[in-house]
Amino acid sequence: MTGFLLRRLGASLLVVVGGSILVFGALRAIPGDPIQLMLGTQGVTNPELVARYTERFGLDLPAPVQYLYWVGQLVRGDLGDSIVQPQSVGDFMRMRAINTAVLGATAWVIAVLGGTGIGVVAALLVHRRMWVADYALSGFSVVMISIPSFSLALILMIIFGVNLGWLPVLGMQSVEDSGLLDRLRHLVLPAVTLATVPGFVLGRIVKAAITDALLGDYARTAYAKGLSERRVFLVHVLRNAMVPIVTNTGLMFGGFLSGSVLVEFMFAWPGLGRGLVNAILARDFPIVQGITLLILVIFTVVNFLVDLSYGLIDPRIRYARA
């Protein structure tokens, strides 16, 4: 077990280092100088200024040296200074990371609860042989999975924000009233948009898992033992259905991080995804490096935890690996 853990940890570390090198190299390969871009016409009129800033951000050094310098700073807990924003990368990311986490966590809760619910209902429909309802629900799920998030965001904004006026469509809070309720109201539409695709995907997976489990040996055995349907369902079937739910939760994180770019863009949510896209466009290297590093670490850690949790939920896997 310890050996497995160590090997897995080593692989994760390798992935993070590799990923950060990839990003670092890619940024240096992009045509376009961040200093020129930032200074615009002033940079053209003032080459000394460009030189000064290039030196200040160490961009005149060879790329491997820059990377080592960056890693050295990182070890001391410093992500460097943004080129474009008058802030350090750490300051830039702190607030945005919290905002994205709030949005992501809410969307995750909605997706897990909603997805599991839909999956269970759908499995029951199959179990009770209610085919028409089953087809309708499956069809609806697939439509919701196919719809682009920005289209969904537009539709939700038009309906709930503009026509009905029930919910605020943008930002994180109102200026005057920024109590908890106000913040929650702002959270609804972006979180629902973000949760839609992963939620319905999860719904399909849960349905498949439960349907499988209902046909599986343990369920048959349980029925044979004379247990009630409710008990069979809750104890045996749901437990078996947990595996895909947990596995998929890890994959969903990637979906949220990707999806948050468009959703944050649409709903003016001051989060990491939108900060990253803007930083890429402005060639703000330190910010891109900082945010991608954070994403890499989170993503890798989540995948690692998911791997571990297999064993906890499904005893067979634990035995197999021990």
């Binding site: 943008l170 930002g171 200026v175 863009f265 003016a268």
Partner: peptide
């Protein structure tokens, strides 16, 4: 005086409509 930072024009337009 408060400068609210809303980079996206459509987003800002909706806020303006809403009276914020």
């Amino acid at each position: 005086v408060i400068y609210r930072i809303i980079p996206d024009a459509q987003a800002a337009a909706a806020e303006f409509r809403a009276g914020n």
